[in-house]
């Protein structure tokens, strides 16, 4: 069970690979963190427990990146075919960084498809690049 797992970054990513966006909640003051923390930055409590986030949120800000990180050029993005780096405000309060995708790659290239405030939902992206283990990254898509 999730309660038995230690709060670590590795375990956060293991949950992502299982389609769960997990964070932690302070048992004393109720503050929530994603990725999870063992120390509450609000009340200094060290009693925190795993919680699952709904995966619903809105686009707080974004950029369509044409000159991308190597990891993304390996996924086929390039000048003229950008990907969307987004900051998403989760309905539970915290924000996360994520790749925002759409129905097709072409959809991602058009700035007109993105608006601050647009509702999004979680979509875990399986990234397969030759020569490395597949990874499961936090992504979002329009509702």
């Amino acid at each position: 069970m999730s309660e038995e797992k230690e709060i670590t970054l590795r375990n956060y990513f293991d949950f992502l690979a299982k389609d769960k966006l997990m964070g932690s909640k302070c048992k004393k003051c109720g503050e929530v963190f994603v990725p999870p923390k063992k120390i509450c930055n609000k009340c200094q409590s060290t009693e925190l427990e795993w919680i699952e986030f709904s995966g619903k949120g809105t686009l707080a800000t974004y950029s369509l990146i044409h000159v991308g990180a190597r990891y993304f050029s390996a996924q086929g993005y390039r000048m003229g075919k950008p990907y969307c780096f987004g900051v998403i405000k989760l309905e539970e309060g915290p924000r996360v960084s994520a790749h925002v995708v759409g129905p097709s790659k072409e959809w991602e290239f058009d700035p007109a498809n993105f608006k601050v405030g647009m509702p999004l939902k979680k979509k875990i992206i399986k990234v397969e690049i030759e020569g490395r283990e597949p990874s499961f990254d936090l992504g979002f898509e329009p509702v």
Binding site: T61, F72, Y83, C84, F85, G86, S97, L138
Partner: peptide
């Protein structure tokens, strides 16, 4: 956290510009 999301420095400042 930001690398798997695709962040680059121009991208991060671009996100500030968008906001």
């Amino acid at each position: 956290l930001e690398y798997p999301a695709g962040a680059t420095f121009p991208g991060l400042y671009a996100a500030v510009a968008t906001a």
